[in-house]
Amino acid sequence: MHHLRLAVHDTRSVSFAYLALGATLGVLVVHSGLEWWWATVFTALVYAGSLEFLLVGLVVAAVPLATVALTAFLVNLRHVFYAVSFPLHRIRGAAGKALGTFGLTDEAFALVTAKPPNEWTGPRILWLQGFCQLYWVSGATAGALLGSLVPSSIAGLEFTLTALFVVLALDAHRTRRDVPTAVIAALSAVVALLLFHERMLLVAMALFTAGLLARRAVSSRRTVDA
């Protein structure tokens, strides 16, 4: 009961976005000609939002499985950076760590890293992740079931995801007020967008990490000089 209440509290900032976006995905699934229950299967098993949206188009176009694999790899490669900050060591046991890494979405990463690692217990992280996925699967399933009744989805609802990432960025910034980090990130994102557009994610994360390391090298040299 305690964990349940905490999980509802910990996920209240993402609940609406997950339900609304999940519903958008569900509508897309049935409008693309797939049976409604694929929305449940996608969200329960793949559990990587941006990939699931892409996957609908890919399987409807019946692209080769190698293309599916490459897309999954490129879209989710950014997750390799998350191991640096996510406190997986708070979760005990192989099964727990397996669940914790399976549920390591962008949103779960942002929610958990917004607090110092020692404020988290393993069960609290896992319950948070469980609730995130519960919202996501429920939203998608409901959207798919209702989607067969409505002619088309509301235009612009995908902005929910943009708004959510902006909110999570602001909350992350509030945890650690470090303006140069935000500036380096914004520059990295814009440069990667202009140069690589659709494939910007990985380049932006690499530029951002390189920028942070360069800044650290410069400031530590200054400290030595002084």
Binding site: A110, T113, F165, L168, A185, L193, L213
Partner: peptide, 27 residues
């Protein structure tokens, strides 16, 4: 995990990752 570089990057990555994702969604 106990290295100085990881300790430096760890707390700073989240804000950048969320900003990058926000830009990505409006590309």
């Amino acid at each position: 995990r106990d290295s100085a570089v990881v300790a430096h990057l760890g707390p700073r990555l989240p804000v950048g990752a969320m900003l990058v994702l926000a830009v990505y969604t409006v590309r």
